[in-house]
């Protein structure tokens, strides 16, 4: 039976601010899951802390709302235990690239087959608007007493350097486009990042919905020109097709170049995709041939009467004197 959008909504009270970009992301996630017709009880949404951290409570799949910055290792533990699960992580830019930056980089090294959505709004919303890692140097959002003294991180560039095998950027209010990106990220074999430009109507009065829609950025026709554009519409091909070293280098190179197009002409869409890198699960299965067929969470460990079924006699024989 096909999954309907309403099947993915929960009764939990949603306390995000009116107009929050999180709603766009939530809708895109639910639409993507419905279109993919996932089994909700085979799907887990894992989040960190902050406004974005609440998203699992609004999606009717398994939800795991973890600690600040730690959604990725939690999610990795779940996925490696039961690789048949569809695991989707979500977190803010502070969660993922501030307190959780170590996990961001090292999760990319592992390339576990999961998707990761970053609610990228440049501020720490739930603690009332401090500067977060993607806020550019010198920007003064409304609750900052002084302009931001730190440089902003370029999440796309960082993700490429760390080794993400799928790197994309979406915009929270282009829900259909974002939905397609999320679907591609979930379907991607490997660790997939979707960085989502997400206006925070309460604390980020610089990168607002109006800003992204083109306010003050008039085109030749004299009309506001949106500050985002879709890379795929200009024929950009992010996919590594054969996996040769030279091709990979070329694709990363063009993605890095794209990642520095910012401001009035900000690309959205898929920057890079490479399915030729083995996933962590595949690497494990190389070493442990029964890993996929008998993964950790599915293994029987005892009989009904509690007798362990692991046979450690060879190990004990090594120690016998």
């Amino acid at each position: 039976m096909a999954l309907k959008l309403t099947d993915l909504k929960t009764e939990a009270h949603n306390d995000w601010c009116p107009g929050c970009g999180d709603f766009g992301i939530l809708n895109a996630v639910q639409m993507a899951l419905a279109e993919m017709n996932v089994d909700p009880s085979n799907t887990v949404m894992v989040s960190g802390i902050g406004c974005s951290g609440k998203i699992p409570h609004f999606v009717k799949t398994y939800g795991v709302h973890t600690l600040h910055g730690r959604s990725l290792p939690f999610a990795t533990g779940i996925k490696l235990s039961n690789p048949n699960l569809e695991v989707i992580c979500a977190g803010g830019d502070g969660d993922g690239m501030g307190i959780g930056a170590g996990h961001f980089v090292n999760s990319a090294r592992r390339n576990v087959d999961m998707a990761y959505i970053i609610h990228d709004n440049g501020v720490y919303g739930l603690t009332k608007g401090q500067a977060s890692p993607t806020l550019p140097l010198g920007t003064k959002t409304k609750s900052l007493p002084l302009p931001n003294i730190n440089q902003g991180i370029n999440p796309i560039f960082l993700a490429l350097a760390a080794g993400f095998t799928f790197v994309a950027r979406g915009y929270a209010y282009d829900v259909r486009h974002l939905k397609d990106l999320i679907k591609r990220a979930v379907l991607h074999k490997g660790f997939a990042l979707v960085d989502v430009l997400q206006p925070c109507p309460t604390y980020n009065d610089v990168a607002t919905k109006e800003y992204w829609a083109g306010e003050g950025n008039l085109g030749p026709d004299g009309k506001p020109k949106p500050r985002t554009y879709k890379m795929e519409e200009s024929g950009y091909d992010p996919v590594v097709h054969t996996g040769g070293d030279a091709e990979v280098a070329d694709k990363i190179h063009q993605a890095v170049q794209k990642s520095f197009e910012l401001g009035d002409h900000t690309p959205i869409g898929v920057f890079y995709q490479n399915e030729h890198i083995p996933t962590y699960e595949e690497r494990l299965n190389q070493r442990m041939p029964t890993y996929r067929s008998n993964p950790p969470a599915k293994q029987e460990i005892a009989t009904a009467d509690g007798t362990p079924i692991a046979n450690v006699s060879k190990l004990l024989e090594e120690m016998r004197v």
């Binding site: 795991v64 290792p73 939690f74 999610a75 533990g77 779940i78 235990s81 950790p296 969470a297 293994q299």
Partner: peptide
């Protein structure tokens, strides 16, 4: 946190 993730999914971790 990864071990806790394993525990959540039902693996002795």
């Amino acid at each position: 946190t990864m071990a806790i993730g394993g525990g959540l999914a039902g693996t002795r971790s």
